[in-house]
Write a protein that binds this DNA or RNA. Structure first.
Length: 546
RNA sequence: UGGGCUAUGGCCAAGUGGUUAAGGCAUCGGACUUUGACUCCGACAUCGGUGGUUCGAAUCCACCUAGCCCAGCCA
């Protein structure tokens, strides 16, 4: 099931040569938003690669920018990651290392490899040059080590205003790699930090902080996405010149992008504000919290991610592939019950009035461990509207129609005798007869029914709310149109339906409603008002032939 | 236009000089079926292009083309 990948090859090589005894990885999110399916690749791959090769995995919050970060995001992320089944060895924060980072930066200063720069942001931008022309040295680039030492200490002590000065690495203003044009290491920013409170008024920048965090933790393989490829030289530069005892290796891979899904923070925020979606955990979103609420099993996410592998190229994966892994998992694990979403009434004319009998039925034909339940049968039933048509259209029709006999799953054969229509010409009732010799499990084999359909006994059925979801965005004609113009008006449809009476659903358990799809209880459910989300539909090879 | 990276069937993805070019998703046939599900069989590519090296190349070289990333005191 699991693809080979180039990172595996690297790790195996490092183990073989004795460079490392075991791998140590980490997932380093900035706590400034919500995790989505795309992040699951980084989380699961970091975790499983470490565990599989006998190492361990850390969760580290990269909280070096207090104005964007918040504790509520760290709690949410921990919940999502734990839900995916990734047990971190340590929960760490970049901010735990602020003192050491400061000391390492000071080391750079004393080695003449970093300097305090007084240029304004605009000037810095100016001096940086652009993609095709080299930058110019800052006039402050050649301050003495003593002066820089004093100035950097003064920055820490709060002697300057926000933004007044920065500490920069002295590398090469003419480098064709923009990241090497004397990158900023520290900025002055008086902001409350969720972890260090008001202890610091200077904060390290990503390019400086990240390699040190990895090195401090002894991370062996530091996985990140492709856009950091040209940061690798600077990553290595800081590890080396800061004299870090342990040397991590940055390896870049392609992010997981799911086609035609909304994952951008500002986009989702707008959908929430506009009321298109009900929150960050709306089941139509592919945020981890949304998938969880919808009823997607985390193991299905893991299987999907492992099947995708870890490429160095960047593609877009179709959401259908993900859904297939959800079905694949649920097909084995989910209990089956009968549910009817668009009911029509079936009256069994030769069945006694006011009588309901109980029939035993397995929850899963091929998985006995899931046990059995009793299914009620009586004179009045509900079947799915689309399972009946007055005149059998062709030999392929494997459902109910006048004069045809079908099996009601786990019950009896019934034959349709008469249709009652309402004033609008809609089918109101189908009158049928049943044959008591055909009871399920009796071994009756004299006739073959025209297919098998499911049903719910009306008097004992539980009425439930069912939420049917479709993709938030319509299949793209022009993918560049604004999101508001691409929204699917039917992304959420709420229906009243019925499920069989003797099953008490447990929260967050996904059921298969036989022949319809997988459904799981939503958190909005109440004792007397069960609410189901459709997790995924079942596949169907049924084609309407003209 | 400077630098970095990528390019294998509709989608994802193995493959690193000699294989019938893995596998998954999708699709199309067919078998089975108390779910038109599941399961099971079968079909489905010559590797962005062009030259070259080689007995032999998706794998090496050259040139070309296309796409992505980089000019935050964001990560």
């Amino acid at each position: 099931m699991e693809n080979r990948n180039f990172i595996r090859t690297i790790i195996e090589e490092d183990l073989r040569t004795g460079k490392h005894a075991f791998p140590i990885t980490r997932f380093p999110p900035e706590p400034n938003g919500f995790l989505h399916l795309g992040h699951a690749r980084a989380i699961l791959m970091n975790y499983h690669l470490a565990i599989e090769y006998g190492g361990y995995f850390n969760l580290r919050f990269d909280d070096t920018n207090p104005v964007k970060e918040d504790l509520i995001f760290v709690e949410g992320m921990k919940e999502d990651i734990a839900w995916l089944g990734c047990d971190w060895k340590n929960v760490l924060f970049a901010s735990d290392y602020f003192e050491e980072m400061y000391q390492r930066a000071m080391l750079l200063v004393t080695k003449g490899l970093a300097y305090v720069c007084d240029l304004t942001p605009d000037e810095i931008k100016d001096y940086r040059g652009d993609l095709t022309s080299p930058g110019k040295d800052s006039p402050y680039r050649n301050r003495s080590i003593d002066e820089n030492t004093a100035l950097f200490a003064a920055m820490r002590n709060g002697e300057f205003k926000d933004g007044e000065k920065v500490l920069r690495a002295k590398i090469d203003m003419a480098s064709p790699n923009m990241n090497l044009r004397d990158p900023i290491i520290y900025r002055i920013q008086r902001a409350y930090h969720h972890n260090t409170k008001n202890q610091w008024c200077i904060y390290p920048m990503y390019d400086f902080a990240h390699p040190l965090e990895d090195a401090i933790e002894g991370i062996t393989h530091s996985l990140c996405s492709l856009e950091f490829e040209d940061h690798r030289p600077i990553y290595d530069w800081f590890v080396k010149h800061c004299e870090m005892p342990k040397v991590p290796r940055q390896i870049e891979f392609g992010k997981l992008i799911i086609a035609n899904q909304i994952t951008g923070k500002r986009h989702i925020r707008k959908l929430v504000e506009d009321g298109v979606v009900e929150g960050w955990d709306d089941p139509r979103l592919i945020t981890l919290s949304g998938l969880r609420r919808r009823g997607i099993p985390p193991k299905a996410i893991e299987n999907f991610i492992k099947a995708l592998g870890l490429p160095k190229s960047q593609g877009e994966t179709e959401i259908e592939m993900f859904y297939e892994y959800v079905r694949d998992y649920l097909s084995v694990e989910a209990r089956r019950i009968h549910g009817v979403i668009d009911p029509i009434k079936v009256v069994i004319t030769n069945y006694p009035e006011n009588h309901v009998e109980s029939l035993e039925a397995p929850f899963h034909r091929d998985n006995e461990a899931l046990g059995t339940r009793t299914v009620n049968f009586g004179k009045v039933l509900y079947i799915e509207r689309e399972d009946f048509i007055e005149t059998k259209p062709n030999k392929k029709w494997k459902r109910l129609s006048l004069g045809e006999e079908v099996r009601l799953m786990h019950a009896y054969f019934i034959k349709a005798m008469q249709v009652i229509y309402d004033d609008n010409g809609e089918v109101l009732e189908v009158h049928c007869t049943y044959d008591d010799k055909t009871k399920s499990g009796s071994g009756f084999n004299d006739r073959k029914p025209n297919g098998t359909i499911h049903f719910v006994e009306a008097s004992t059925a539980q009425e439930v709310e069912i939420r049917l979801f479709e993709n938030l965005l319509l299949e793209e004609n022009d993918r560049n149109a604004p999101i508001e113009e691409r929204l699917n008006p039917n992304s959420k449809v709420v229906r009243k339906g019925y499920i069989e009476g003797n099953v008490k659903p447990k929260s967050s358990e996904a059921f298969q409603f036989t022949r319809l799809g997988y459904f799981a209880l939503d958190q909005d459910s109440k004792e007397d008002n069960l609410v189901f989300n459709r997790v995924v539909e079942l596949k169907s090879s049924y084609k309407i032939k003209k």
